[in-house]
Amino acid sequence: MLTLNGRELWIGYALVIGSALAIVAPFLWILMTSFKFPIAISTGALWFSPTGFNYADVLFGARSDFPRNVANSLVVGAVSTILVLVIGTLSAYSLARLRWARWVGRLFLGWTMLFNTVPVLTIVGPWYLFFQQLGLYNTLAGLIVAHIIINLPMTVWLMMTFFRDIPVELEEAARVDGCTPAQAFFKVILPLAVPGLIAAGILAFVFSWNEFAVALNLTSRMTATVPVGIAQFAQQYEIQNGQMAAASIISTIPALLLMFFGQRFVVQGLTMGAVK
């Protein structure tokens, strides 16, 4: 690697430390804000006596829907992640190993690529009409379906990269030993792809937890998720700054957990496509 000396070394340190601080500082400021009373926020007081008022109001307030939002997000995130892993892993394996004609793979990947590239709002309009017909509008099931579809392309690509890394010889050996293709897949290949499943699952859950545009338009009070809940703290007559800050902090909990415990998988998932 490069060897930095003198001025270059200082610039390097400044860049790296400065960036890290720039990333962390907004979180700290917002954390501080979330412990302020509204009057301390709107006067911009630097010294204040911390209060749990905003958190109490967000989590236990009589008019707050936030606990429900969290529950909805957890349900939608968990169910959609499991289902997208099942559907996505099977099809990824199928495309990677089961000798489909070239055009099948190309069509599948090309279409998912296109779908993943267009702004999701182009399709939310038709979904709105279609989901109403199907009775899926304003249901958690509807949102789960939407999140499966949104996360499917990413899951398929990621799992395909993992399957391609597994030597073909392993499968062939299993087949020679009398395994059916299904057995070869479930007993031999799948266990080897577990790190991939974890990486894809983590990303699918996070994307579902974070997803806003679809949830905003296809849910209402009883089915709203965390991002929709956060957005609602900016109301017409009164922007609840303290509650907005507290809800934002709560919404980052999955991200924080992953940062400490799942970093390896996240980095792997995010960089996989790029490096390969």
């Binding site: 008019r63 338009n217 209402s220 009070r221 609602q232 017409q236």
Partner: peptide, 15 residues
């Protein structure tokens, strides 16, 4: 009562 922010009112009534 379903208390809704102003921005969500029209959508909910329509739906």
């Amino acid at each position: 009562l379903d208390v809704t922010p102003y921005n969500g009112m029209l959508e909910k009534a329509r739906n």
